[in-house]
Design a protein around this nucleic acid. Structure first.
Lengths: 238, 238
DNA sequence: TGTACATCAGTGAACGCGCGTTCACTGATGTAC
DNA sequence: TGTACATCAGTGAACGCGCGTTCACTGATGTAC
């Protein structure tokens, strides 16, 4: 009896996943602003009204895609870092590996990247559910930098940031604490790593670097190296 | 006779400007993806078809707005720098002034900023005309950094970037030349300044920093200071 | 095991909307003699 | 200065499109006895 019930529920879950997969395809093809419920339904051979049994509105679908996307980026970052650690990499090399991993994901999923880090979709306000997955990438960054502090691999800042804690307690908690001087501004500095990474990837993806670099990948590495310099990470060069 | 002709032409130019102004208003209100010719026409009390006497398509209007926007950002940066120079600021302070100026413009014109640096508008490909105005900001950055090199105010990089010229000859020309070692990688490093600035502003504007900083303006300054550290600019602190 | 009923999935038509663009048109503004 | 013609500005209706969402409906799947 419960087996039967779960059969129906399993069918339901399957369709939810099929819808999400179709939506992902749509997103990859036409981008978030042009993503339409009707196109998703068409893709599945369903009546457009059928989707309302599974998602209450287009925005709900977008939210699901947003969460999926942040999770995918976060997972990519975590895996890249884990692989680097397994290979015995120093913090600088770990960070570069994360950057390359994230850039690779973005190049493979440009429209999804746009959804995550591009202009907000007009008329859509991301709900709370998307906040937590969005922090996953920052967590990885903070982990690398804090590991560098603990292993003594982080170059102490030549000129510490003035003032204290610019970052909220919530961020400190997410990062897993803040070290003592002279590394007490390390969380603030780490924020630049995230900003530089996301900024560089978006810059490239949105076409602002077209014709500026002789080699996009090498140029990206260089940018991340310079950002690393600012934070005190020692990146492998050459 | 020619006075009469110019009268008509002046009227035409006036309307072109009125259309652009209305489009700017529309853009500021609803954002680029939702910007519609019909709304612009409504705003002016015209039939929507009338606009086709002045712009051949919606895309042409978008292009005009794009050029305007890049010019506005560029002008803001130039003015901020000029004011800093006039006040006798060092290169580091000049750079911070430019950053603050650009951020201020972006906060005042969020939708325009999105048009310039956010996700590309779906179905719209920016034509050549937009490239040159887009470089205006980079020019200012390069000017500040090169001035720092010449005045000896730039800290030489602790770890120079490996490889040579990652930046294309076109960029070198725009920047106005590249200095000799140990500053020969300064153009590559400068690129991070642009990326960090645009990245930080977009990050804040697109909502990724909500709840992360106790003081957004101070946090922004700190981010720019860290980016400056990576490049070798000495920013005023405290 | 079989029957009566309730729940759910999916349909297809419809509503109302706004969009970009085209086109034949009416007047007004300019030009040539 | 006045008249005949050409150019241009702006109109309003129309085309064709796709969208999100609602709603009454038909069958199929499950449930209770």
């Amino acid at each position: 009896v419960t087996a039967a019930r779960t059969a129906r529920e399993r069918a339901r879950q399957d369709l939810v996943e099929a819808i999400l997969a179709a939506a992902r395809r749509q997103l990859a093809e036409v981008g978030a602003p042009a993503l339409s419920l009707r196109a998703v339904a068409r893709d599945l051979g369903l009546a457009s009204s059928a989707l309302y049994r599974y998602f209450p509105s287009r925005d709900a679908l977008l939210t699901a895609l947003l969460v999926e996307g942040f999770d995918a980026v976060g997972a990519t970052a975590e895996q890249a870092d884990a692989r680097a650690v397994a290979a015995g990499a120093e913090p600088g090399a770990r960070w570069l590996a994360v950057c390359r991993g994230v850039r690779g994901w973005a190049l493979a999923h440009p429209h999804q990247w746009s959804l995550l880090y591009g202009s907000p979709v007009p008329g859509y306000a991301a709900p709370r559910d998307t906040v937590e997955p969005a922090t996953r990438l920052s967590r990885v960054m903070a982990g690398v930098v804090l590991a560098a502090v603990q292993s003594g691999a982080l170059v102490p800042p030549a000129r510490p940031l003035p003032g204290s804690r610019l970052v909220t307690p919530a961020v400190v908690e997410i990062a897993g604490g803040a070290p003592p001087p002279p590394y007490d501004d390390v969380l603030e500095r780490s924020l630049l790593l995230v900003v530089a990474l996301v900024g560089a990837v978006s810059f490239e993806l949105f076409g602002h670097l077209v014709g500026a670099l002789t080699d996009d990948a090498a140029g990206f590495d260089a940018l991340m190296a310079v950002a690393g310099d600012g934070v005190g990470l020692v990146l492998p060069r050459g």
